[in-house]
Design a protein around this nucleic acid. Structure first.
Lengths: 151, 151
DNA sequence: TTATTTTAGTTACACCTGAAACCAACTGCA
DNA sequence: TGCAGTTGGTTTCAGGTGTAACTAAAATAA
C-alpha cells in the first residue's frame, strides 16, 4: 500500500504508443530528411498528393491529420523547392489546387518505396494473424479516441 | 499500373500509429496542461519520478525516451515550480538525484488517476483477447524497431 | 441587394524542440 | 600522477509548432 496511484510508464498504453510511433517516424524521417531535405510535414503532404492529386490545402490537412497552419507552411516550403505546383479552384477562388510537380514525383518515387520498405521490415516480425489483429485493434482504438475527444 | 509506388497514408502503419498516439497524448496532455500547467515532458518526468525516486536526469531520460536536453529543461521548470527536488550524487558530483517534492506528490496524486482513467476508457473498447494481442504486438514491434535502429 | 456568418489560407507571436557546442567531473591507462 | 577520452548536464542557436488574429472569398439570410 503505497498510497499513490501506480502508473508504470513502461506499461502505460498512451506512452508505449507514443514512444514506438515517435521512434518509428523519426527513423523514417531521418532518411528523407538527410537524403532529400524533407521534413515530416512536407513528406506527409507530398504523400497524400502522390495518392490523390489536385486537392485543396484543407483536404491535405484532413488527410494528414495536420492542422491548416502546418499545411500552409509545408505547402509554402514545397512550392519554394519546386516539389509541388499550386493552382486556384475555378469554382472557389479561395481554394488552392495542389499537385506534385514533375520534380516532386521524382522525389516521391524515391521516398515512397523507402517508407514502404521500412514498414515491411517491421511487419515482417508479425505473422498474418498478428497483422490482422493489429489492424483491427488500431482501428477500434482510433474510433474510440475520436468518440472520446468529442465528449 | 500507375508507375508510382502506392502509399496510402490511411493504411500506412507508421502513420496510423503516429496519428493515434498524437491524438491520444494530446487529449491527455490537454487535461493536465489546463488544470495543472504541466507540459507533456514535465508530466513524463514526474511520472517516472513517482514510480522510481532518487534517480539521475540521465535515468529519467532513458525511462521517458526523451533526450537529455528535453529532460534538462523539464527538470529546470519543475524545480522552479517546486514540484521536484534535486540533490547531487555522492559518488559522482556530476549526477543529480531527483525526486518529487511534497507539492509534486500532491499533483502526481491528481494527474496519475486521470491518465490511468483515460487509458481505461480506451481499453474498455477492447476485449481481453484483444488487449493481450495488443500488448504482445506492441512489444514485438518495439523490439523490432530497436533492432532496426541499430542497423 | 446588402449585411452577417462561415470558410480557405496566411501571418504574427510566444513557446518548444533537436543538434551541436560547451563545461565540469569522472574513468582508464600509461 | 597526468593526460586523453567519456559522461552528466546546461546553454545556444536555428528552426518548428500551436493559438489567435487576420484577409479574402463564398454562402446564407434578410
Amino acid at each position: 500500500m503505497s498510497g499513490h496511484a501506480l502508473l508504470e510508464l513502461e506499461s502505460f498504453l498512451p506512452y508505449r504508443l507514443s514512444v514506438l510511433s515517435n521512434t518509428l517516424s523519426q527513423a523514417i524521417a531521418k532518411v528523407y530528411d538527410k537524403r532529400f531535405d524533407l521534413s515530416v510535414t512536407e513528406w506527409r503532404a507530398m504523400a497524400v498528393l502522390g495518392y490523390r492529386a489536385d486537392i485543396s490545402a484543407r483536404e491535405v490537412a484532413e488527410r494528414t491529420a495536420m492542422d491548416k497552419v502546418a499545411v500552409s507552411r509545408a505547402v509554402a516550403r514545397l512550392l519554394k523547392k519546386g516539389h509541388i505546383e499550386r493552382g486556384t479552384a475555378r469554382h472557389d477562388k479561395r481554394q488552392s489546387v495542389l499537385r506534385l510537380s514533375e520534380e516532386g514525383w521524382k522525389i516521391y518515387d524515391q521516398v515512397a518505396p523507402l517508407a514502404l520498405d521500412h514498414e515491411q521490415r517491421l511487419l515482417a516480425h508479425l505473422d498474418v494473424e498478428e497483422r490482422a489483429w493489429l489492424t483491427r485493434i488500431l482501428d477500434t482504438l482510433w474510433k474510440a479516441e475520436l468518440a472520446e475527444s468529442m465528449r
